[in-house]
Structures are given as C-alpha cells and as structure tokens.
Design a protein around this nucleic acid. Structure first.
Lengths: 335, 335
DNA sequence: CTGTTAGCGCCTTCAC
DNA sequence: GTGAAGGCGCTAACAG
C-alpha cells in the first residue's frame, strides 16, 4: 500500500540510496537522474517515512510539550506560539496535558522519550519531576517558571509585584490587597516588599486567599465571595493585585454586585494580560509571550546542538504593566 | 547511550526476542525469565523505542490533529478533551495549527502522513483539501463541521438558528438581527427560516456583517462599530443572534457604550458557550464538546479497525440553548 | 557520480 | 518456551 524509496528507485531506474540522496539534497547526483527521481516522486506523491528516518538518524525533529492546563488563555497563547516557532524550524509538537498532576506529567515525559523527541519543553506541575528530568540526557527546558535543576525561562515575578505596588503607591493608594493561592508566591513577595520599602503597611488580612484547587472561575469566585462575606463592610483597601486575569475579573464582578465600583472605589490589576484583560479593559501584567517562546526554543536548540552539559541556565524575563480603564467602568457609569 | 532490548537481553541472560515478548505481554515466556527481564528493565529504566515499533508494526498510535485557530476558546476546549480521550486510549496527539490557511493545512496533512499517524482529525479551513484528504487511505474525520466527502462530526447549525429564533419569538420579539461573517452560514439560514415560518420578517439590513478576516475581538468590534455608525439611531431590532461568544460580547460592549442596555433594550445570544459566555453571563448556544470529541474519536477508531471504506458518515449533533441573565446587566443597573 | 552493503531497534515467523 | 534469522524504510560509509 505505502510507497517506499525502493518503488521510486525502480520507477526512476536508479538505486534506492540515490533516491535518498536527491530527497536529502545531496548535490552529488547526476542532474538527469535527479530530475527523473523528482518526477516520479511528484507523480506518485511519495512522502518519506519519518519513523524510519528517526530510527536511522536517531533524531525525530519532534519536541514534546507538557502543559498543566488550558483553562488560562495565557497557556494557550504560549502553546500556539510555540507550535508556530517549532514548525518554522522544521519541528513538530507532541502535546500532552498533565492537568497539574505530577504523575501524569511523568507519564508525559516517558511517552516523549519513547517517541524519541529531540527535546522537551515543560510547564511544570511543581518541583516533583524536575530533578528526574534533569538527569534524563534529553535536553529539556522549563517554561514560565524558573527551576534550579533545569534550564528555565521564567518571568521576574518579584519585579512584577514591585511594579504593581509602586504603581498603586504612585497613584496615591495607601491600603493594598492581593488575591492569590499562596503567600509564598513571588509576585506577592515583590508586591509586599515594595509596599513596605515605601513606608507603607501590608495588612495580612488583605491577602485574599484562593484554594489551590480553585481551577476555574466559579471556584475562584466562591473563594472571593467567602472572603467578602467574612469581612462584610470592613473593606478598607483601595487597590487589588490579582494573581491572574480570571481572578481579577471575578473580583470585579463580585465587587460590582456589592456596589463597589471599579475603578472608582477600588482599582484592580490582573496578571498574564490575556485577551480576557484586553476584552474587558482590565489593567494587567503583560508577559512577553513571543520572547518567552523564542528564548525557550532557542535555548533548547542550543542544548540540542552543543552536547556539553553545563550548569542550568535560568532566564528571567521582564514583564510590563499594561494600564487600562476597565471597560466594566463604562458599563457602571453608563446610566 | 540509549538502552535497547539487546542490552536488556544480555543483562537478563535471555535473547532479545524474549525481552520483546515480556514487554508485549506474550504469555509464552518462562516465569523466572520474565521476572529477570522485568527487573532489569526496572533497574535501567528502559523504554522501548516507538520509532522502531512504528516502523515494524506500521502503526504509530499517534493521531494528527489540524486546527484552524486557538483564539476561540471553543477550539481549545475541543483539543484539550481530545487529548484526554486519545491518551486514555493509548494515543498521542500531533498538533498543528493551520491558522485558517489551506496551504498550511495541507502541509499539516503531509507532515502527519510522513510521521505515520494512524488517523487524522481535521478542523477544516474550508472545502479546499477535503477531497484530497478523502483519497488518502489514512482514516480521517472532520470535526465541528460536516463535509460530504469525508466522515464528519458537526453540529446542527440550522437547528441552532431555529432554536434561537423561536426563543426570541416566544419572548415576544418582532424585529431580529444577526451578526456573522456570511449570509450562507447555516445558523443564519435556520434563524431566518424560523423567523419567516413564524410569520415574521427578517430585514436584510439587520444582517450585521463581519469581515472574513476579522479574527480577533478588535476587528470584530470595528465591524460592529461600522454597522452601528452607519445605521445611527435607526436601530429597531430588539434581539441579536451572534455567530460566536466573542462577537456577542463585543456587540454588548459597543451597544452599552451607546446607551443601549443589554438585556433591557436588546437581548443577545452568542454561540459556542465558551467560558467567556459563562463568565460574562451571556446566553449562548452550547455545543456538546464531550459528545463531539467522543463521537469523533470513536468514529476514527472504527475506521481504523475496519478496513472497509464505505460511504462517508455525517453526524450532526444537537446543540442546546443556555439562558443567562447577562452579567453586564448587573453592572449596568448597579447604580 | 552511484550501486552495494550494513544496520538503526524492534517484532515475527520459524525451527529447535 | 526460546533463540536465530529476516526485514520494516531509510541513511551512511565504502567501493568503484
């Protein structure tokens, strides 16, 4: 059924390796013969079998990508760009979702190995598999987060937090809030540090906690409502930094329903600058997706070509703050 | 560097085919020997080379997925589910984006063939490549749209349009609008037909046209603004059916800025029921993503196992209408 | 310039 | 039950 080089060779009256030569652009082929081969290939629509090539060359031109979720559009943009960059460089993407589950993440890695990927790009579920991966002899780079034991391209979250705090302070705010999963978050660290460094106080009651398991907007909303119900009318912060855009939007909605106007009463800054922020006009920390993908891919290519295995590189990209008016305000002040 | 069955065989003091046998669960192996082999495999962390397996078995357990975009979260949900179902069945996904470009789409297909995928799932860019694909001898199924020449799992768009029109009529509306790319759209056809069948009139001036090239919310917004500017205050429709949720939201925003209240003045129904609709409380046509993915995958598996190549099957799934209050209304009526 | 040869890692008869 | 032999489709020396 399937056509092979052998058939092409017979039809073009050359040997099979010659067919291989013309396909791989080996110049040392008689022009006439090459033409004949190309003609036959064209006619029968021959496409070389990459499984055989991979086996022979021990290079698959495939990279395995393990992601943690697709719920946050930020990750989707990342994957999409990555696929584009990879294709432009002749690579295909093998995509597997770990769903934030380290066990599945490890399965993904095993699968990538089995399928002979040339390299892996990992959006990690946590620390769990990082060290094992680093010992694997397959070039791997972690994207979106920095890890000690592996090449990684992340974002300067501390800087992002500082930037937001300084913006708030510059705008005259004096009482701050943060919404996020864990207090150990770098962006919270940067946020809080900058507040304190500027002589202000961060009230720990104004850390609005989200459950680790709150992975969609309903659950995030629930956590926010819980907080708001608890504090009742004792809200005295005037600015909020949310750990991502979905959270920011849910806070704005929850606040609005309680008669709190954003941005007149409270201003909000989200994170990731996804199209959610763009569509809804929410200020947000923009991650340089293009740069992150490009850097990650280049780093992987570099590791792929230069066998030497030096110390892991940690690259931290600089975010920027995108200011918007909050479209929601438009709706609120309409009447 | 890489470990092979040969090494395992030596370490376990058996022959290489025996290693293959235990890995593939062939019962005809001495228990003692099998144990030894498994132990060695465990110790050295051996993972069989799928490129070799693929070459030998001419089966890769991979399916190629060509998508047109990731901008609409609906497609992302689809891919994510698909990846989950595929994995559960031992398949990996090779993902390529055609970016709505038929040339890239064809490249994707070629690449899939080269990489020996067992089957393909295509979200098509249009009619362009469908027939070529149908002649390919690799099982392929089109998802999200129905095509004559290829197995396809789509949605009953005509029914969806009817459903929305009937809902509008039931609510007492008499003047209708539609926002979408082309009047040939099945959902517009169903929408308009139901309006006429119920004795109402559809004013062609109330087809709000979007450019084919308007692929993001800014461009969609621009088209909507153009329309609204053109008609000025002569808006006499009270209900709008938008071809997707992003369009619906952009219309709501544009209308709100002009003092038109949604849903008090105009009600809006979107399409796809993405989380955008969920987050913003926009009514929308829900596509049964789970069912679509499951059906598509099962159909592909069926084609994969039963060599016979009967007539293409066209499956049309039934959408449902999810009614919401439009959160935007909450904001609008706040003060 | 080009054909012959060998082998990538695995699976599959086929004898023993 | 298991080893030996052959081959999947391709590439890479190596002669000629």
């Amino acid at each position: 059924m399937k056509i092979t080089m052998k058939e092409i060779a017979e039809l073009a009256k050359v040997s099979q390796p010659t067919v291989s030569r013309v396909i791989n652009g080996n110049k040392t082929v008689n022009e006439e013969a090459a033409k004949r081969v190309l003609k036959v290939i064209e006619e029968v629509g021959f496409i070389p079998n990459k499984a055989a090539q991979t086996l022979k060359r021990s290079r698959s031109n495939t990279i395995g990508v393990s992601i943690t979720e697709t719920y946050n559009p930020y990750f989707v943009e990342l994957i999409d760009h990555l696929e584009g960059v990879a294709r432009k460089n002749g690579f295909s993407i093998l995509l597997h979702n770990s769903n934030r589950n380290p066990i599945l993440e490890w399965e993904n890695v095993q699968n990538f190995i089995a399928r002979q990927v040339d390299g892996m790009i990992i959006i990690p579920t946590g620390e769990y598999n990082i060290e094992r991966i680093s010992k694997l002899s397959i070039p791997s780079v972690v994207m979106t987060q920095n890890r000690k034991h592996l090449d990684s391209v992340g974002l300067d979250h501390v800087f992002a937090g500082k930037m937001v705090a300084e913006k708030f302070i510059h705008l005259g705010h004096k009482s701050f809030a943060f919404i996020g999963t864990k207090p150990s978050d770098d962006k919270f660290y940067g946020f809080k540090s900058a507040i304190i460094e500027n002589g202000f106080h961060f009230d720990e009651n104004q850390f609005i906690p989200l459950e680790e398991s709150s992975v969609n907007n309903f659950l995030m909303r629930r956590d926010i409502e819980n907080y708001l119900n608890k504090v009742g009318n004792n809200i005295d912060f005037t600015c909020v930094f949310a750990a991502n855009d979905i959270i920011a939007l849910e806070f704005i909605k929850a606040a609005s329903e309680r008669g709190i106007n954003v941005p007149d009463d409270i201003i909000v800054v989200g994170f990731d600058d996804t199209y959610l922020a763009k569509i809804m006009g929410i200020s947000s920390i923009h991650q340089p997706i293009d740069e992150m993908v490009k850097t990650t891919f280049d780093l992987l290519m570099d590791r792929l070509e230069n066998e030497v295995h030096p110390e892991p590189i940690q690259i931290k990209l600089k975010p920027t703050l995108i200011e918007r008016n909050s479209y929601l305000n438009v709706f609120l002040t309409q009447k």
